[in-house]
Amino acid sequence: MLDVKMVSKNYGSLEVLSKVTFKVKRGEFVVIVGPSGCGKTTLLKIIAGLETPTTGFVLIDGKPPNPRHQNIGYVFQEDSLFPWRTVEGNVRFGLEVRGLSARNIVKEVIALVGLEGFEDYYPYQLSGGMRKRVEIARVLSVNPSLILMDEPFGDLDAQTRWIMHKELWAIHEKFKKTTILVTHNVEEAVYLADKVIVLTKRPGTVKKVIPVKLQKPRNKLSRQFIKYRGKIIDLLREEVPNI
């Protein structure tokens, strides 16, 4: 489904990514972790077709990424809702820019993320977790073939983040959308991922790919879960000793 091959990215003399290579199968949930500044967000933007690699290439179903012609959903780290639009209006936006009209789909995805009854609310009236649900619903409404998520839960409190982990897992189980999520949270990575890609410090390259062979939904207190978490933390400590 996705093939990232020898991708490097320079900004002038600053090398951010170096020869990043990995593959993602259709329906997989892949999480990318790595030290701050190692190029995780840059890599996600290259996969989305929002930036161009200096060298190397990305293929989605055998074709270079093109946001205009490929159905790629992107959940940003920052709040990206339009404050002048209601919940329903924000979710409908993705359909509008594609020239589609599907009120039933909008209602369905709003209900799916647990916001039924909040259709006419504005973003300022919602909690952080509810706003993030709206962003996820907006992505789901266009039925993307690939979902990219850049630290979507980084600004949420621990309790809300845990709830969102469970909800995102349930959504992925239902739709089996190919998903790539970037995070600093190792526990989040182990809970959600079919495999975790660990990047080195800048210039980021693939240090190790770790398949997470745990039954879902996962118990964060289980011995095996803690073992996976410790393994990833040890790999990150090799890059940044004071983690």
Rank of each mutant, 00 (worst) to 15 (best):
V109E: 00
I180L: 12
R133V: 02
N143L: 10
R161F: 07
S145M: 11
P123R: 02
A137D: 00
G114P: 03
R133K: 14
G154Q: 13
F175N: 08
V142R: 09
L126Q: 00
Y122R: 09
D157H: 04
H184Q: 12
V109K: 00
Y122A: 01
V142A: 03
N185Y: 05
A170S: 08
E151V: 08
Q125W: 00
D155K: 11
T178Q: 13
P123S: 05
L140Y: 01
Y122H: 04
G114M: 04
P152Y: 13
D157F: 06
P144T: 12
W162M: 10
L146A: 02
F153G: 11
L168W: 06
K174G: 15
M164V: 09
T183S: 14
E173R: 09
I180S: 04
V142F: 07
L126E: 00
L168V: 03
V182Y: 07
G154L: 05
V182L: 08
D120S: 15
V113S: 15
A137F: 00
A137Q: 01
V186R: 03
D157G: 03
L168G: 06
G128I: 11
E173L: 03
G114S: 03
A111K: 15
R133W: 01
L140D: 01
V182D: 14
A137G: 06
F118H: 00
I110N: 01
F153D: 04
M130K: 08
L126V: 00
G129C: 14
P123L: 03
A170H: 04
F175T: 06
L140G: 01
Y121Q: 13
A111M: 13
P152R: 09
H184L: 12
D150A: 08
L168E: 05
G117C: 10
G117W: 12
E119A: 08
L112M: 10
G114H: 04
E151A: 13
V139F: 12
E116T: 01
L126I: 00
F153K: 03
I110H: 01
M164T: 06
I110R: 01
A111D: 15
H172F: 08
S127E: 08
H184I: 07
D157R: 08
L156D: 13
F118A: 00
L181D: 09
E173W: 12
F153W: 13
E108C: 00
M164H: 04
L146H: 15
D155Y: 13
L115S: 02
H172M: 13
L148T: 10
K177V: 11
G154S: 04
R161H: 06
H184S: 05
E116P: 01
T160P: 15
I147H: 12
L140Q: 02
H184N: 07
E167P: 06
M130A: 14
V186K: 11
E173A: 07
R161M: 15
S127G: 11
F175V: 14
L156M: 13
E108N: 01
E135N: 11
V109D: 00
K176H: 09
G129M: 12
S145H: 14
G154R: 10
S141K: 04
N185H: 14
G129V: 03
N143Y: 05
T179S: 15
M130L: 09
H165P: 11
D120P: 07
P152W: 11
W162R: 05
